[in-house]
Design a protein around this nucleic acid. Structure first.
Lengths: 224, 224
DNA sequence: CGGCATCCGTGACGATACTG
DNA sequence: CAGTATCGTCACGGATGCCG
């Protein structure tokens, strides 16, 4: 019997840096390959295993399963069983949701690397939500709070502006159930907004963003 | 001839996520094991290979050398040759220095994990610089600009407050050449300050921080 | 002696196949 | 659909050796 039976907990903790440093501790938890990208996906709301696998091209099934278990054990995510017709979904805990600033900082730093778009690059529409949120919730953000549908050539997603309740998704793939406004623009502009090279009100004035909707959010986007 | 001859540039770029996403691009550059911790070390100023190896217990020599080359090639760091008595040093480029917000976000998220101090944990004094800087430069930061020497039981380091010129170290190991003020406190308080659970002025008033120095920075720390 | 390069054992990773 | 099993490959960690 060479292999001890492993208890309910995962057998061996992942390799730790063993440093009394907050940054090193954070990397112990989320520094493994794919982990932060899984968090990015889950920031869009609850996702099924298959959804995650589809939106993370290149990750192998066992690594994805292993990371999800690690994240469960680490308190980053939970697995929730849905009534039988539907499958189980993974969703971030409040602690996992707290990684949004980390991803935002990484995305801001990595933004210049998006200058070139390699032919091998995968794209998903909701990957543009983070830069757009930066433009919406950041300084000079013109909009009131609400849910905004965003239509790109690459697809559609929605963002929830002005939200600070942890645990609730700040953006999501596809259209929202009830959107307060809707904009149509292209990805390039979306990135420029995130880099702060343009403001949303400017872009609306220049006609590079089409705004539709009736409520205060749409009005705010149109510049009052 | 199965293997192509490899040119002067590094043979194969590290495995990329191949995603058109700023966060994924950032992780392509700094997502490898040890890379962000090397950045953390270099944020303290130019360091020699041996210094880095000493302050990063567990990293193997070849991985450290490989990461430093990757960082050179990626534009994060440069290697500068010093006149013969001294050895070469590595220092961050402006781009590399731009990772400070990423490390700050990671450190803030990882701060709760410092509640327990494991016996296997390595400690270096300057690892406490980031939380302290958060207390100094953040809102309610009482201090004027200047260089502050900090004495912990674990060692001594210094921080440069109110600096936003990229490329200049914001903190460093050991005492500064010319410090405008000096404080003595313990690591626990340092972490509490970083978590925002206490303010520096409070702690000074309670006698948990000893302040010495004459200039405006010291006066500011003492509460005018 | 500092700054790596080389070698080697182990474990993590990626692709595919397979199962409840 | 949601993973587990298997396997080849590569990255990592540790030790040692070379070279200025």
């Amino acid at each position: 019997m060479p292999r001890e039976q492993q208890p309910a907990t995962r057998p061996a903790r992942r390799r730790s840096y063993d440093q009394f440093c907050a940054g090193a501790r954070a990397l112990d938890a989320v520094g493994d390959r794919w982990t932060l990208l899984i968090v990015r996906e889950l920031l869009a709301g609850p996702r099924r295993y298959t959804d995650l696998h589809a939106d993370l091209p290149g990750v192998s099934t066992d690594v994805l399963a292993s990371r999800l278990k690690d994240m469960e054990q680490g308190g980053l995510a939970t697995r929730r069983r849905l009534p039988p017709p539907a499958a189980a979904v993974y969703e971030l805990t409040e602690r996992g949701h707290g990684l949004l600033p980390v991803l935002a900082a990484l995305a801001e730093w990595g933004a210049p690397a998006l200058a070139e778009r390699r032919p091998t690059d995968a794209v998903r529409a909701h990957w543009f939500a983070l830069p757009l949120l930066r433009a919406l919730d950041g300084p000079g953000g013109p909009a009131g709070d609400g849910v905004l549908d965003v239509q790109l050539e690459e697809g559609e997603f929605h963002v929830r502006t002005g939200v600070r309740e942890p645990g609730s998704a700040v953006y999501g793939d596809g259209p929202a159930d009830r959107a307060d406004a809707r904009i149509v623009l292209d990805a390039e502009l979306c990135l420029a907004l995130g880099r702060g090279e343009a403001t949303l009100t400017e872009a609306v004035r220049d006609g590079r963003v089409e705004v539709s909707g009736e409520g205060p959010l749409a009005a705010g986007l149109r510049g009052e």
